[in-house]
Every structure is written in structure tokens, then in C-alpha cells.
Design a protein around this nucleic acid. Structure first.
Lengths: 341, 341
DNA sequence: CTGTTAGCGCCTTCAG
DNA sequence: CTGAAGGCGCTAACAG
């Protein structure tokens, strides 16, 4: 691994001169410049960013921490982040917490050690311990998708309350009255917001009695499966499900199949997050789609602004609207259907 | 951002003593140790890994470059890599080339600048330019999934030739005789290997005339769509498709639907890579599944061995077998079916 | 236009 | 058991 000193010696100049050539700064005679460039080529010299960062106290690197790297929603966010960051000459370190606050804390520690310039975080829970580390160090932070309790922090998310509200309205319009909510963890803000939207729509429709209709679980296939089983045991049985993310939806559909129930004939179905279009053979779910790529992009732009001391004073909240697709998974409520005889 | 000097001053000791406490090295009296620990806690001191790496000339960081981060096959590999690396105290930088050799070259450059200790690479093409940079610097390299032409390099991959061979045998057993191959880019080794397995199975079955049956394209939904369209124009039309990855499979299924063809009645279908089980409502494809997580894990273990100068002399090739699932997408050939009247 | 000095934060080496 | 000096590779600030 040749260093700037090796190049300098070979070209018969000082290290400073080499540095100037490499960074195109200051005045250099054409003659020495080409001698230096020649030496660089001969040695295959590649500058050491570490040393540079040590001087500049900045690494041109940001990190993105998500809770589940297998979820296409988050990989799409990741693409938005990566594309936007690299446009501006920043590298991204991706981390995956598996929804564990402890892992999150540990990653944040390591990332601070690595001197990242800023962090994009999908928090594993709404508690605020892990980010206090960052705030002590005044490392800019932008929250993605989920919020934290307590003081306001820059954040980019999709309007979950509205999304849930509209999905429920759609079901109400189809004649459904018993609409179960299969949500995420109670201490994750997106789950709480989606419950709030569901609740509002039902209340407005005069359906205040929600006993047995609300279920909390994990944002996973197993979570969806388990909540659906619970929901199917209630009596009278719901005629429609609202699921709070794509994994929950898949788990719930499996549970329905195990019970021999058809969608939408026996159970209508609406969900947050579509399945990845790439992998979809048969588009099926009525869904509130979150603009994942755009969320990643906006969050990165905001963070990079903060790095340069720009952007609005105080915490900035960017809330993007969901898009809706209406497909086969939602149909009329059984008792709202024309009789079949 | 407090430094080791700040802690030293506050504890009334030298920087060296703080360093020894932080790294648990050398002898320290219990008294000074607790004084130092107290100062660390008060200042929220977190060591600067950059400075450390500059001294040690190693960063405890490896990188993984894949060609398509939206493909679940690669994200599963990524999980295997991340889990294994962090077990051993290494961080991972993930990069995405979008199948572009230029992006690949650029990433490798940046990663060398960042002083990564080693690289896991899914090459965008079989040419060898981009990795020569690494070899100059003697940075350990392990290839994943795909190989390069020329000199042998440590690599971990799945047996593509065998996988394709077995899938075609399955189709032959079902009575198919015209089996089209929809493969990836001709200059990607996995695509070539899968073609080779297809070819061998057909040759052994005495079906040497392959005119019009072999198609090369990109590893994408569009690629699959386009190859399937081409394949459907040939006459006589094939009765079965072998697709070289999951995206090609999805694109091909869509093309079939557009032509009003049913699977498997009008066209049988086998593929490499399953769709992600997480996202699957209706398991459908007969597939050769590559052990993605295990590939990531094995590759990382090999790379970490190399970092410590361990492992077999010469290039080490780890070839894992595919697993097979037989599902609804493949059925008897039309003319092999019992007549229906 | 080019070179020298000094220091980013850390740790190895060698004295106390 | 603890500390002082020096250097990892790079560049800003100041000479020349």
C-alpha cells in the first residue's frame, strides 16, 4: 500500500505537492503535475481516506439503521438513501437491528466510533435512550418511518393515520361493520398511528364498540398469523381485516387459508404496504402503499442539509401521503351482498 | 466530541493510562482505573476508531458488493454475511452495482480508500479489470455466486450446472422434449453454467437440436418478459421453460399470461431461485433453491480466515449444492398426458 | 509555485 | 504500575 510519501519521493517533490495534485488545489506547474501523476500511476497510489477524515473530522459517511433488512419496504428505502447519498459523494453504512433496541444501541455506539457524519434511523421502539448518545455528540439524526416519544426530532414518514383511515373507509363503503385491526407492536409509533386511523374511521361511522377487534403483535409473518388466529376466534367473527404491514398480511392470509376461508368471499382484506412489484405474479392486496424510495430520498436530503448546517430551524417533519391500490382482496360484506338464491 | 486527552486531563493521568483502561491492557491499579472510568462516564467518551485504524492499518471492516440489492437472493446473502461478520467483531459496508462493471470499479476504488480489510464480491461481469486494483494492494477477495475468467480466486457458489441439469431432468421425466432455456447475460458465469447443465441433460436424452431454444438476456423481470416473448414466437413452441433466476421467472410468467397461456397446462415452468418465502402467499414454482444465507456465511468465514493469513494455500472454491422444491408450475407435457376424451 | 511544520486521536516502545 | 516521545497518512497554515 503506497502512501503519499512514496509518491513524493518517486516524483522528487514534497508530500504537500502530491496532496495538491491529488486534490486539485492551489497552483502547480504543469511540469511537476505530470511528474507527480506519473508517479501516482506507477505506484497505483490510492489516497487513504482514514487519515484524511482524521484531519477533517468528517468521514463523508452516513449510516442507515433499519429494523428488518428482509422487508422490501426497507430495502426500497435503502435504495433511495444510497442513490441520494452517493450523488453527493457520501457513502452509506447499512445496519439491521431485527427490531431489537439493544442491537440498535450497540450499532449506534459502533457508528459513533467510526465517526459517521450523520444517521438515518428507523427506531426499534419509541423509547429514546439509544439516540441520546448521538445528541451528546451532536451528530445529526433523521428518523425514518417511526417517531420517538419526547422531544421533536427531524423525521420523514408516511401518514399512517390517514392511510389506515382511508382503508377502513373503503371497507365501510363496502358494507363491512366488524373490521379487525391486526397491528404491530404497541410501542412502535406507526402501529399506534394506524390503530388511531382505524379507530377514527369506525367512530365516525358510529361503530364505537371495538371489543375484541384490536390486536397487537410483531411486524412479521408469524405475528400476522398469530393475530389472525386470535381474531378468528372472536364471535361474531369480523368480516374484514386491516393489517398494519406486508408481513402481517401474508401471515394473516395463511391463517385464513388454514381455516378454509376465502378472500374476499369470507374475509375482506386491506393492508399497509404492497408486496414487492418485482416479485408479484398476481397483484392481489388492496393496499396503502408508502412511498418508500421517496422517503429514503427525502430523509437523506434533509440529513445532508443538516450536515452543512442548513435546513429549517427546529425539528423538521416531512409527512408524505400514502397511495392506494384497490384490488381483489377487498369485496362487499357478506350481509351487504345481493342474496344468491 | 471528547478525546482521550480530555479524559486523561479530567482523571489526572496520562493518555496512555486511559488507553490501557479502555483496552484492558497492561497493569493498572484499581484506584486509577476507577478514576479513569469515572471520567469516561462523565464525558461520555467514545474512542475514535479512525485514529485507531490509522495506527493499526486495519479497520475491522469488510465490504459486500452485490449486483442487485432488491433481489431477495442477495439480501439473504447479505444477512448471512452481516451475521457472521458481526459475530467476529467486523462491520460490513454493503454496495450495490446494478449489474454495472463501471459502478463496481468505482465502488472498489472508494472501498480501498476507506481501507477495508477484505472484500466479498458478486462480480457484475466475468472480466477481471476491477479486481486487479485489489490484488495490487493485496486486499483479500472472495467471490460470491459468480466467477471471473482467468486466474483462480477464492470463491463460494452454488452448483449451477447441476441445478440446471436436475431441473431439466425433471422436465424430461414429465415427458417434455422442447425445453427452452431463458438465461442471464452470456458473460456472467452463473448464466453460462446453467446453460451448460441444460445442454448436458438434453444431450444425454438424445435431444441435441437446440435451435431456437436458448435465450440470453438480463437477470431482470424485463429480461424474462422479453426472452419469453421471443421463445413463444418459435415454432414448434416449447412446452416448458427453464428460467435462470427468480426475476426472469416472474417476467416470463407475465408474458405467458399476456399470451393467454396457463401454467402448467400450456407451459411447464422450472426456475432457479425461489420467491422469498416471507412474501409468498401461494408457493408455486418448481425451483432449484440456492442456499443464499449459507453462501454468505461461508464466504465471510473464508474471508476472515484470509485476513488472519489462515485457510488453504491457493484459491479455495466452495461449491454448495442447490435444494429442489417441486410444485405446481411443472406438469406433464401435453402430448404425454392421458387423452382427455 | 513549492516546501516545512505541526497536529488530527490513538497506541507501541521504552523509560521511569 | 505509569508516563513521554514518536508516528500512522494526510493537509492547513505559513514560509520561502
Amino acid at each position: 500500500m503506497s502512501t503519499i510519501a512514496d509518491v513524493a519521493k518517486r516524483a522528487g517533490v514534497s508530500k504537500m505537492t502530491v496532496s495538491r495534485v491529488v486534490n486539485n488545489s492551489g497552483y502547480i506547474s504543469q511540469d511537476t503535475r505530470s511528474r507527480v501523476e506519473e508517479a501516482i500511476a506507477e505506484l497505483g497510489y490510492i489516497p487513504n481516506t482514514l487519515a484524511r477524515s482524521l484531519r477533517f473530522k468528517q468521514t463523508q459517511t452516513i449510516a442507515l439503521i433499519v429494523t428488518d433488512i428482509t422487508n422490501p419496504f426497507f430495502t426500497t428505502i435503502a435504495r433511495g438513501v444510497e442513490d441520494t447519498a452517493s450523488e453527493q459523494g457520501f457513502s452509506v453504512i447499512f445496519c439491521n437491528t431485527d427490531e431489537s433496541p439493544e442491537e440498535e444501541q450497540e450499532y449506534i455506539r459502533v457508528l459513533i466510533q467510526k465517526q459517521i457524519d450523520g444517521l438515518l434511523l428507523v427506531p426499534a421502539c419509541s423509547r429514546t435512550e439509544s439516540v441520546s448518545l448521538l445528541q451528546d455528540k451532536t451528530i445529526p439524526l433523521v428518523l425514518l418511518d417511526r417517531q420517538l416519544t419526547g422531544q421533536p426530532i427531524d423525521s420523514v414518514r408516511c401518514d399512517s393515520e390517514l392511510g389506515a383511515y382511508c382503508l377502513v373507509r373503503h371497507l365501510l363503503d363496502l358494507g363491512h361493520r366488524r373490521i379487525a385491526m391486526l397491528s404491530g407492536p404497541a410501542d412502535v409509533t406507526t402501529a399506534a398511528d394506524r390503530v388511531a386511523g382505524w379507530r377514527r374511521a369506525l367512530r365516525e361511522a358510529g361503530l364505537g364498540a371495538l371489543a375484541g377487534l384490536l390486536h397487537y403483535g410483531t411486524y412479521s409473518v408469524d405475528g400476522g398469523h398469530e393475530m389472525a388466529r386470535r381474531a378468528l376466534e372472536t364471535s361474531p367473527r369480523p368480516t374484514a381485516f386491516l393489517t398494519a404491514n406486508n408481513f402481517i398480511a401474508v401471515g394473516a392470509v395463511r391463517a385464513l387459508a388454514e381455516h378454509g376461508l376465502r378472500v374476499p368471499e369470507d374475509m375482506s382484506f386491506v393492508t399497509f404496504d404492497d408486496l414487492p412489484p418485482m416479485m408479484m405474479i398476481d397483484p392481489f392486496f388492496t393496499a396503502a402503499m408508502q412511498p418508500a424510495y421517496e422517503m429514503g430520498r427525502q430523509a437523506t436530503l434533509l440529513l445532508l442539509d443538516r450536515l452543512e448546517g442548513r435546513g429549517p430551524a427546529g425539528a423538521h417533519e416531512i409527512i408524505l401521503p400514502p397511495e392506494f391500490v384497490f384490488r381483489r382482496s377487498s369485496g362487499p360484506a357478506p350481509d351487504a351482498r345481493p342474496s344468491e338464491g
